[in-house]
Simulated scan of single mutants.
Amino acid sequence: MSEARAQSEDELDEKTQAIVAAARKTFLSLGFDAASMDQIALTAGVSKRTVYNRFSSKEELFGAAIMETCKNLLPVNVDDIEASLPPEEVVRKLATQFLQGILEPEALSLRRIAAFEAERKPEIGKAYLEHGSYWMAKQCAPILARLAARGAYRIEDAEQAIWQLGALLTEPLHTQALMGDAPDDLSAAIDAQVNQAVTTFKKIYGA
């Protein structure tokens, strides 16, 4: 197991952060195939050996870039949010930050790269799922479980519930944005979709 994978749930060291940032920038500007470990090392200002000491392959680097993107979708003060807001507002706040994040241009571009490459390189699709969608579900499911424990929702399987909430949140806005047809007033569209998703989720799982 590489150093980067072992550190996946921890803060990355300074050089690793630089490598992941450089990889993200290179993937976004060149695509997966054209991006090289040499170019990533050059952009990060480190040696190629340093890159390989932390990441065994370009696919692993792509996964790390996806995970760093996902980390930005969750607030750093989740505990404070849970303690200070009613359960429905907790879900609304987290849902809004999530939807705003996945509709950022760079997040959309990384999703397009993964979708384009997945058919001929299944490991790219798997990396996106493992470090993106699956990772997010595992981070967010405990939040729903805690809200259910407070009596706000009736949830037996928190991970399944988080997938259903994600489906309610993302469509059709995410697909519209991926296809280059996002509404002109994206902020208003996000608010409307979050409101609808939270209301529907409460109808399904509300106590």
Rank of each mutant, 00 (worst) to 15 (best):
Glu3Pro: 05
Glu3Gly: 04
Ser8Asp: 08
Glu9Phe: 15
Glu11Ala: 08
Asp13Lys: 03
Asp13Phe: 03
Lys15Leu: 12
Arg24Glu: 08
Lys25Asn: 08
Leu28Gly: 14
Leu28Ile: 15
Leu28Asn: 08
Leu28Glu: 07
Ser29Leu: 15
Gln39Pro: 00
Leu42Ser: 11
Arg49Lys: 14
Arg49Glu: 09
Tyr52Asn: 06
Ser56Leu: 10
Lys58Val: 09
Lys58Gln: 09
Leu61His: 05
Leu61Glu: 03
Phe62Val: 05
Gly63Thr: 07
Ala65Gln: 04
Ile66Ala: 04
Glu68Val: 15
Cys70Thr: 10
Lys71Asn: 09
Asn77Arg: 09
Val78Thr: 08
Leu85Val: 13
Leu94Ile: 11
Ala95Gln: 01
Ala95Met: 04
Thr96Val: 05
Gln97Gly: 09
Gly101Ile: 06
Ile102Ala: 00
Leu103Lys: 07
Glu104Gly: 07
Glu104Trp: 03
Glu106Pro: 05
Leu108Arg: 04
Glu117Ala: 14
Glu117Met: 15
Ala118Trp: 09
Ile124Asp: 01
Gly125Cys: 12
Gly132Cys: 10
Tyr134Pro: 02
Gln139Phe: 04
Cys140Pro: 00
Pro142Tyr: 12
Ala145Lys: 15
Arg146Leu: 08
Arg146Pro: 01
Arg146Lys: 13
Arg146Asn: 10
Gly151His: 07
Arg154Ala: 14
Ile155Met: 02
Glu159Cys: 11
Leu165Asn: 02
Thr175Cys: 03
Gly180Lys: 10
Asp181Gly: 05
Pro183Ile: 07
Pro183Met: 11
Asp184Ser: 12
Asp185Cys: 03
Asp185Pro: 00
Asp185Trp: 03
Ser187Glu: 14
Gln196Gly: 14
Gln196Asp: 12
Ala197Phe: 04
Thr199Lys: 09
Lys203Phe: 12
Tyr205Val: 05
Tyr205Pro: 01
Ala207Asp: 14
